[in-house]
Amino acid sequence: MIISVVSGKGGAGKTTIATSLAHIFQADYYDLDVDAPNGEYFLQPEKWTTREVSQQQPDIDESRCRACGACTKECRFNALYKIANHIYLTEALCHSCNLCCEVCSEGAISYKPVVIGKVRTGHSNKTWSRAIIGDLNIGSTRGTALIQDIVQQIDSSGTVIIDGPPGNSCAAVAAIKPADLVVLVVEPTPFGIHDMLQTLDILKNLHKTMVIIANKSQGDDPLMSLLAEHGLKLSASIPLQTEYHKALLNGEIISQCDQQIYQLLLQAVAAELLKQ
């Protein structure tokens, strides 16, 4: 059972809810916000192991290359360019698509693995489970590829919590696709609601079952009526409170320090799990 926690808006409370769910269900936690992962500050995993993730990128054999430039003309990502009699690669633009290898009439292009990031796995004494952190190399643009690599290797024999990236682009989709259940965290402000509506589009297209949780709530009336228009309901609401912010800023898991929130989240998600 894979549960993905997503939001659209950044700072809505994905990590707050995802770490709490990992705590409540003693589940493996996957941090797929690979270019700003923060879950480890809450779960404080130990005994790390690390695996590097690579993507195949072109390697040009200078002895064979005639610098005809065919590869640079065909590459649609402008990742290859020619200066004087040399072909150069901009790694950040390469999508590892295989086209340049096919195009080269001299067989001068092969592929070599290039590290785009790493996956760090540790054991958390707060969840009694694993915390798996996606960690994109700084400067790399291949976040979605790293997410997809981690997703492919998820062990979903038990319960798994995915902490997704913010936004509504391909990276969010990659973190949503494997989910059996999506927990949509909404900050019920004009901003949070605007971004949530875009996430809802993605979730509907992918036919995902979802549980909707309001966080930092100052009153949910507009959100509830909006959800009703979409045939959806709010399953839980966590109020905006200084105490919660205080707990979170130092990495406390909110379900661990507040029994009420533990119950609220447990009931909201367990009700849906039972249905499934």
């Binding site: 700072g11 916000d33 690979v34 270019d35 700003a36 400067g139 790399s140 976040g143 936004g167």
Partner: peptide, 10 residues
């Protein structure tokens, strides 16, 4: 700017 440090931030 967008959040994060990947393609959109770059």
């Amino acid at each position: 700017g967008p959040p994060g440090t990947s393609c959109q931030a770059i």
